[in-house]
Amino acid sequence: MADLTTKIASLTLRNPTILASGITGVSCDSLKRTSEGGAGAVTSKSVTMEARKGHNNPIMVAFEGGFLNAVGYSNPGIDHALQEFSAYDGEAPFIFSIVAKDAEEFGEIARKADSLQACAAIEIVLSCPHTPGYGTMAGQGTPQATQDITRAVRQQTKKPLSVKLSPSIQALGDIAKAAESAGANAINMGNTAGPGMVIDIERGQPVLAFKVGGISGPALKPLAVRCVYDVFESVKIPVIGTGGISNGKDALEMMMAGATAVGVGTAVHYRGPQALGEIAREIDAWLDAHGHASPGEIIGIAHENEPRK
């Protein structure tokens, strides 16, 4: 058996799989269940300052390559979320995902999130493609905004901090560097892509209530792999590769591009909450079969230069 222990700053995971934000992360019990299913870490649904109902349904639609979603950051607000997750005691560390309208509000929510004992790390998301006032729709996907927001959050917490970026932005390297220079401990690369649109031809209407939504699932994978590859060359902090990972081979591909850990989302639709544990076992089996003692031996090997680790 390979040693799958994964370190991201001061965070230690039993394996490199992380439940991505927005995937069943509404209740404490569902995160515990994902932990029991073998996840390396679990992430809450992204939380805002106040409660948000989100967009009307349909919030998610399938297409041949995966899904589009436009949930619109439905969440009960940070104060309710602090209560909800206070009882979290799963083996997989709990990552608190937060979003806000600007740097000041980010700082304020981060201060609250940091106060939660169960919170092992904080993720800030600057990349949602489908919610007015947040993410790329609020201009948070620029180097300057990334630096300002990351700095504001860094001032409120000493816990490991990851910044989640959009795969639909060209200046990724500069944005990742901005996050790193402002004190981020990891880059989560990244969010859903697009936005895209699905039209039902029998009704002649976009299916999603918000009309457009972020693309996830297998169709996102090659884009996400390329983004991880680029970010790996731009920063020294670890990269969490997220996008289209359905099985161990997908995860290994992402790790060869440079990911230290992998975010798993849509695969929970295909394989249920135990998907992460299964993916970890598939990574393990492949590493064993290829004579590797740990994932560290393959992280970043797709790059021309020697891997840095």
Partner: peptide, 10 residues
């Protein structure tokens, strides 16, 4: 119910 597909957790 939100997505109906086991993802959104609502």
């Amino acid at each position: 119910m939100g997505c109906g597909m086991g993802i959104c957790g609502k």
